[in-house]
């Protein structure tokens, strides 16, 4: 499948990249390319220009400093989960990064690209030919949404594996623009709007992921169910972090809404409770209330709802053993 035509730039600095992006609002950043190029082959994304970040060498690192673990946005997933500190102390992140696609996607795909990946939908992630049987959907440039059966809305689903793990580790991200950079909670970059899932300003790129080292004190895990264990996006994915010393739990899900979801009501419910078979019995019901499942994948809503409850329960049971 041929890629559509585009102009190509390979800037040498973040500032240069941001300047090009500001100048060309329709340009798209390419990191590992494993998400973007597939969408371009399908003609659901057709940027006039590609700004390849492959020339930026200083965004590839995992470092610890001043109580923070800092990971460059262009660090490839394989390097993230092979890092000894991540592997040992941040198991949710290691498990999530090593569950993305196959070994090849983990070798090519970057952490920043994983977080910023497009939302997905069974009517969107298809070839132009497949899609030509229906009018163009809203996200692909038309009016109707074939999922909601309404115009001008989009319920495509965020399916990234790593975001929920980073959410429960209380990660922040550094966004760089021409005016400089700022650090914001990871959660704040997800808009919850299907058509434009990220809250990045024009000319902004994600340059660093920052995880407080305190998140290493505690139990954490990421669990995923996919059609094939080997290569597929999650049908549902769940990350859990718990602290024995403070009695806190943090829980986040992916593939259940237009953005990755922190289930705060459930967290409040569990606060201070001793985790045991009894207390985790009711989590299924609670967890489902905080997500907005739509028929944007081939899996039914009731199936996803069941999986979600089971995954969170099984992660919490592991936490009981791990504490």
């Amino acid at each position: 499948m041929r890629l559509p035509k585009f102009d190509y730039r390979q800037p040498e600095s973040i500032q240069e990249a941001c300047a090009i992006l500001l100048d060309q609002p329709d340009a798209k950043v390419l990191a590992g390319g494993t998400d973007l190029l597939v969408n371009m082959k399908h003609r659901v994304e057709t940027p006039s220009m590609i700004v390849s970040l492959k020339g930026l060498r200083d965004l590839d690192y995992v470092r610890k400093a001043n109580g923070m673990v800092r990971i460059g946005a262009l660090t490839r997933l394989k390097k993230v989960y092979n890092d000894p500190f991540v592997a040992k102390k941040l198991p949710a992140l290691a498990a999530a990064a090593s569950s993305v696609g196959s070994y090849h996607h983990q070798t090519m795909g970057t952490l920043g690209g994983n977080l910023c990946q497009q939302t997905r939908c069974k009517y969107f992630n298809q070839s132009k030919w497949w899609r030509s049987a229906r009018p163009l959907c809203f996200k692909a440039g038309g009016d109707p949404c074939h999922v909601a059966k309404k115009d001008q809305v989009c319920y495509s689903t965020y399916c990234g594996d790593v975001a929920p793990a980073l959410l429960v580790l209380n990660a922040e991200v550094v966004l760089s623009g021409r005016e400089g950079s700022k650090q914001v909670p990871l959660e704040s970059i997800f808009s919850g709007v299907g058509k434009t899932p990220l809250n990045l300003e024009p000319g902004q790129i994600l340059t660093e992921i920052v995880i407080p080292e305190q998140s290493a004190d505690g139990f954490s895990t990421y669990k995923k169910i996919a059609n094939r264990g080997s290569i597929d996006f999650p049908i549902v994915g769940a990350a859990v972090w718990t602290s024995a010393s403070t009695g806190e739990s943090r829980i986040a899900l992916t593939a259940v809404d237009r953005k990755p979801v922190r289930t705060r009501q459930l967290e409040d419910f569990l606060k201070g409770l001793e985790l045991n078979e009894e207390t985790i019995q009711g989590v299924d019901g609670l967890v489902a209330k905080e997500t907005q499942l739509m028929m944007s994948s081939i899996d039914s809503i009731s199936y996803k709802r069941k999986l979600m409850g089971q995954l969170v329960k099984s992660a919490l049971s592991e936490a009981m053993g791990g504490r």
Partner: peptide, 13 residues
């Protein structure tokens, strides 16, 4: 030295 999918790699890169 690493395994890459050449269908998802721009030749210029």
């Amino acid at each position: 030295g690493e395994a890459y999918l050449s269908c998802l790699m721009l030749a210029v890169d």
